[in-house]
């Protein structure tokens, strides 16, 4: 872990849509190699947080990636800096084939290893390999979520932002998904910032977590602490 600079440092972040302000100055960090999870109810500002980080909506405050400010940077530049954002709803390029989706993920890369990377993710996600020439929009929700993650990884990011990867998926598919994400993190040390409502699964792979309430951070702590915190358990684990 590099001495003092976190991979992503967010401070006093405020953002919203037009006249409606959603985030009221939130602070959090992601250290290299960490999986950080942000929990929260609908409308708490989870998606807005990710959108603000990747430059899709205007924001105020501090967003630093590897010590450099990202605030006001356009999404395509943020992507090129090494942050891959898997948007809510998966952002499938429906009319393109599975393989084209993956190759698009590598759009910003200039090296010659794109083809071998494609093969690598086909090994991790065999379903995608089977359907490489199929129109991406015709796949099931779970397959599209795998595709979205693989597409993000094709850019060889330093940080992946995942927006509710479990949304609309069957429980068994969700479990498989988080198993793969956890493995990825352990084996490659890839950092992730995950926004989730399914707190149980997310905390299972996370290092630390934050709980977002009405646009402010209500609770922070290690994943283990959050999983045993009474308030969190009541609100997000249904216990």
């Amino acid at each position: 872990m590099s001495a003092d600079v976190p991979l992503l440092r967010v401070a006093e972040l405020s953002a919203g849509y037009g006249p409606v302000q959603v985030l009221h100055g939130i602070d959090f960090t992601v250290e290299p190699g960490e999986v950080v999870v942000i929990l929260g109810a609908n409308g708490a500002g989870k998606t807005t947080t990710l959108r603000a980080v990747s430059g899709m909506i205007p924001a105020r405050g501090t967003v630093e990636f590897e010590g450099r400010s990202l605030l006001g940077t356009r999404p395509e530049k943020v992507a090129r800096a090494g942050i891959a954002h898997v948007p809510q709803g998966r952002g499938t390029l429906a009319e393109l084939t599975v393989e084209e989706n993956l190759r698009l993920g590598a759009f910003a890369r200039r090296d010659a290893q794109v083809a071998s990377d494609v093969e690598r993710w086909y090994e991790v996600f065999p379903r995608l390999g089977e359907r490489r020439d199929q129109q991406a929009g015709s796949m099931s929700g779970g397959e599209q979520q795998m595709l979205a993650i693989a597409r993000a990884l094709m850019s060889r990011p330093k940080l992946v932002l995942l927006d509710e990867p479990s949304l609309g998926l069957a429980p068994i598919v969700t479990q498989e998904l988080f198993r793969v994400l956890g493995e990825l993190n352990r084996e490659t040390g890839l950092s992730m910032l995950v926004v989730e409502q399914n707190a149980g699964l997310a905390l299972g792979i996370a290092t630390r977590g934050y709980v977002l309430e009405a646009g402010t951070i209500a609770v922070t702590g290690s994943a283990a602490d959050l999983a045993t915190n009474d308030d969190v358990r009541k609100a997000y684990l249904g216990i």
Partner: peptide
């Protein structure tokens, strides 16, 4: 939107 997130201008 997805294209933009993949680094396409």
């Amino acid at each position: 939107e997805s294209s933009r997130l993949a680094g396409v201008s």
